[in-house]
């Protein structure tokens, strides 16, 4: 198994209340040290609720946000320069809001040309041929190229966004909530397109979403994020079916499923990011929390097989 992507203790801290001179007033740990491994050709699903740091993690992986600590390795080579162009050829990003990720004042052709020219130095006929090839791959008609972004529906705009990401010929695609702005009937079209492109272009996916069912449907492995830390990882079919971390259980129980009674509610909210608790960040909402949990942060450890959880009192499988 060759690794496509590996992060070692990747972390991000934001300064709050910056001053002109001197240290900031406070710091927020958006992402606590995260170590992930994604194999070639695998889809790793990342789930978490708003504020859990999943988008910050994604932005660090593509170089849009310089990490505060830690390392990113792509296919065995360390990447630590915050130069998006260097990242761009290896790893690309598909945005959540399809229409706002396209410059309203440029035609689709201009948008598609940029990565090909800048990252691969393509010109002339080769450029046109490659654009036609990419548009064909995402099932869009070539006459769309001379239109402006506002003329497209969300699903079409997201295909354009995917085609643009593919134009860089990356090895890895980060999909940040790629279907959450789309209607369900269009969502399925885009998910199926992504599945086909993965085989066709031999890609590795990081699929970020808050929708558990969507993540489960597309992923090989899933990592659950809570308050900036990975609390559980494991094979997609096991994580929600047999969760080991109480938070994962809460998530799975909360997801609305036809025929299941309303439930999973529970109480509580995310801790204050400016004043995080000393121990496990989920302890205040957790029915199994003990003094140990409130004292020290649990490490991610192996439960069964390929399933890991950061919990002192894991649930039974």
């Amino acid at each position: 198994m060759t690794l496509a992507l590996k992060t070692t203790d990747l972390a991000k801290t934001f300064d709050i209340g910056k001053r002109l001179i001197g240290p900031p007033r406070a710091q927020v740990h958006a992402v606590h040290p995260v170590s992930l491994e994604v194999a070639q050709g695998e889809t790793l699903g990342i789930v978490g609720e708003s504020g859990c740091g999943k988008s910050t993690l994604a932005r660090m992986l593509v170089g849009l946000e310089p990490p505060s600590a830690g390392q990113i390795e792509i296919e065995g080579r360390a990447l630590d320069r915050a130069d998006p162009a260097a990242f761009g050829r290896l790893i690309q990003y598909v945005f959540q809001h399809p229409v706002s990720s396209l410059n309203p004042r440029k035609t689709i052709r201009q948008i598609m040309e940029t990565p090909l020219r800048r990252l691969h130095g393509m010109r002339g006929a080769a450029l046109d041929a490659r654009i036609a090839e990419l548009f064909d791959a995402v099932n869009l008609r070539p006459e769309f190229l001379d239109r402006y972004p506002h003329e497209f529906s969300g699903g079409q705009a997201q295909r354009i966004g995917i085609a643009r990401a593919l134009a860089a010929s990356p090895r890895i695609l980060i999909l940040d909530e790629p279907v959450s702005a789309l209607d369900v009937s269009v969502q399925a079209q885009v998910l199926n397109l992504l599945a086909r492109l993965k085989d066709e272009f031999n890609l590795t996916y990081l699929f970020i979403s808050h929708d558990l069912a969507v993540v489960e449907a597309v992923s090989d492995r899933i990592a659950v994020l809570y308050f900036g830390s990975v609390v559980e990882t494991g094979p997609a079919e096991r994580v929600f079916a047999a969760p080991r971390h109480p938070y994962t259980r809460l998530l799975a129980d909360s997801a609305p499923v036809v025929g299941k009674p309303l439930g999973g509610a529970g109480h509580g909210e995310l801790p204050d990011p400016l004043n995080p608790p000393p121990g496990c960040t989920f302890a205040s909402r957790c029915p199994r929390a003990s003094d140990q949990c409130r004292g020290a942060v649990p490490e991610l450890r192996r439960m069964t097989g390929d399933q890991f959880a950061a919990c002192y009192h894991p649930l039974d499988p």
Partner: peptide, 14 residues
């Protein structure tokens, strides 16, 4: 079209 939790990995009917 709608993926449902617990149904596992699959191609959706679009």
């Amino acid at each position: 079209c709608v993926p449902e939790l617990g149904a596992g990995r699959r191609i959706l009917a679009a």
